[in-house]
Design a protein around this nucleic acid. Sequence first.
DNA 1: GCATCGAACTTTAGGATCGAAGTCTTCAGG
DNA 2: CCTGAAGACTTCGATCCTAAAGTTCGATGC
Lengths: 188, 188
Amino acid sequence: MSDTPEPSGPQASQEPSLDEQIAAYQREFRDLDPQVEKVVSALGRLNRRMNVAYGRQVADLGISNAEWEVLKTLVLSGAPYRLGPGELAKRLGLTPAAMTHRIDRMAGEGLVTRDRDENNRVRVIVELTDEGRQKWLEAMRMATAFEEELLQDLSAEERGSLGEMLIRLLRRVELTQPDAGGRLTDLD
Amino acid sequence: MSDTPEPSGPQASQEPSLDEQIAAYQREFRDLDPQVEKVVSALGRLNRRMNVAYGRQVADLGISNAEWEVLKTLVLSGAPYRLGPGELAKRLGLTPAAMTHRIDRMAGEGLVTRDRDENNRVRVIVELTDEGRQKWLEAMRMATAFEEELLQDLSAEERGSLGEMLIRLLRRVELTQPDAGGRLTDLD
DNA sequence: GCATCGAACTTTAGGATCGAAGTCTTCAGG
DNA sequence: CCTGAAGACTTCGATCCTAAAGTTCGATGC
């Protein structure tokens, strides 16, 4: 008795640091470029953390991250803030079925309205309500404050070059991944 | 008939370009720093695209992105590639309940085994099988090839400075967002 | 006009996740 | 020993998403 006191068991503890993680990968996979891996892993982690942060903030407004996405998309479409479910689904990377339900909820909460198009009754028009627009505005204020805080350690020059490099990566990924109607699912 | 031929309806078409998107936000929200927004939006989009790309690649191996996450976590833990469901859940940002089901599936597919700990029968040990390790290796090969391709337009110097800046952002977000046991849900 | 085709949404069935409520095991006392 | 408390999963019920099968309306051809 008392000869398995502890730490050989499956209990480690926390997410490893980025450097630890990269070192571990290198042990398991010889030809790994640590510089590349550093960029990629940092990107993934940063995004996860940011999404958690956004989610917390909009939750204080009583909306979910998913609902905020819809509000953003409608506002981006410009006044009068109207889009069809199909178009919304395409931009958000959801199936039309999921869009139907999400709009149901949001209409129930008064964030959007859902009406048949007068001129083409097979179409539906989703329109932002004033309340929805207000929520978007509040969320936007919180988001920009957070983003400003996030970037506080970077000079204007650094911000510029960071943005420029990210856009170059984005262009490259769009080139090599033609996005065949792509689902935007899952996270890293 | 034929007086509502078309394009005033809610049908626009595709995701706007980054610059269009930022311009639209500025119209709707005056005090927006375009430079900050550019960095943040590019980050979000880049990540979405990358996750779609990863998902496609591992799908060719017959596994889901979710399963690949588990494989990665087990490999990262080092030989003998064992972790408990609770620890896995914590590292992956899932609830223990979701972990139970995910392990079920993966055990059924032969990617992992699930056994009771001999020394402490309340614990469960999830261990990577050879097949699971093989899958991880193949996924890793595809992933690194993709990542190398993604970064091909950046010089070694640029890669370094990009990684360094991202890590600075990561540190900042970890400071301001203490990650209270955080769910890592949702995407942007 | 009327039947067919296609477009745009909705409904249905199944999978995955979360939060909360068990269940089983171990450990500390009495 | 037996009881109570805590830990580690698992089960349960509700939610949200996907894929596939409807529905409904509009456009075309005859």
